[in-house]
């Protein structure tokens, strides 16, 4: 395998890992909420800016800042669910209304970030710090990209354990299957959905932080990441976390190999071509929810 191909493989896996972290949270919140929570995208920016503020404003150690930022982003996700989506659901709002509400939340929160931190591109790394690069089978990969891949694997395993082996996970799967019956059998669906939205937002925040350490952050970073996460979730089979990961990896590979011989600007077009192809020919995705 040539070095170029090897580098493309590494890039694909790295991109896929990042998309997977976002897609897992998105697909989980879709599973219990039954709507496209577009505000999931802005959580990436909130996580990244929380770390930016904590490390550069309050001079807190990076690891502690990351931890606080993840919890904070989760809390924002929970607040949106508790005070916007849950009341709308109680009023029997349609999924379209919830989608528009989440778009509103996305726009508002993105605006708040712009007001607080300006629209300028910022970095999370310290001034002259240079990322460590590791050579691997003819390709190179940065330290933060390795962390991204490990984080994606840990996120998937964490959610698999949560959903398969904990009592709470059974409640999540029950709510995902039939919220009304879950209520009737005594499951506190409001609390279950709230916790899922917390976890989904927290993972999106983590993805934003990883992007921030790898490249740069800006208030509008959420939309591009959201779209990739949504494409991955749909391609993989919406509502299925394994599907989300498979979809993310496929998207990473198609995107990166797609621009092998052509300009990088085609990357997003290729991603959406993949989405449209799946919507036309396999609308339930690689793995449908019940497979």
């Amino acid at each position: 395998m040539s070095d170029v191909v090897m580098q493309l493989v590494v890039n694909s896996i790295t991109a896929g890992a990042l998309y997977a972290i976002i897609a897992i949270g998105f697909t989980l919140s879709y599973g219990v909420g039954k709507f496209f929570n577009l505000a999931h995208g802005v959580m990436t920016a909130i996580g990244a800016y929380a770390v930016f503020y904590l490390t550069k404003g309050l001079q807190i150690e990076a690891w502690l800042a990351v931890f606080i930022a993840i919890i904070f982003t989760g809390a924002v996700g929970w607040l949106l669910e508790r005070y916007i989506y849950a009341p709308l659901r109680a009023r029997k709002a349609s999924t379209m209304v919830l989608l528009v509400a989440s778009l509103g939340a996305f726009t508002a929160l993105q605006g708040v970030l712009s007001i607080l931190f300006s629209s300028q591109v910022q970095t999370l790394t310290q001034g002259s710090a240079v990322q460590q690069v590791v050579a691997f089978a003819g390709a190179t990969i940065t330290e933060i990209q390795i962390i991204t891949i490990i984080t994606a694997i840990a996120t998937l395993l964490g959610f698999v354990v949560l959903l398969r082996y904990t009592l709470f996970g059974k409640s999540v799967r029950a709510v995902s299957d039939d919220e009304e019956v879950s209520k009737i059998v005594g499951i506190n669906t409001t609390r279950v959905i709230g916790v899922v939205f917390f976890l989904a937002a927290a993972t999106a925040g983590l993805a934003g932080i990883l992007v921030g350490f790898d490249t740069a952050i800006e208030p509008t970073m959420g939309m591009a990441l959201l779209l990739k996460g949504v494409i991955a979730a749909i391609v993989g089979g919406i509502g299925n976390i394994y599907g989300a990961v498979l979809g993310a990896l496929l998207l990473g590979f198609v995107e990166n190999f797609g621009i092998w011989k052509i300009a990088g600007e085609w990357k997003d077009a290729i991603a959406f071509a993949l989405l449209i192809a799946f919507l036309l020919f396999r609308p339930h995705g690689i793995l449908n929810k019940k497979s």
Binding site: R173, V181, R191
Partner: peptide, 19 residues
Amino acid sequence: FEQMTVLDNILVVVTERAV
């Protein structure tokens, strides 16, 4: 709860409610 096993369909009813 179609995604779940027969046993889990029952366990989800009888198990702990506190998150």
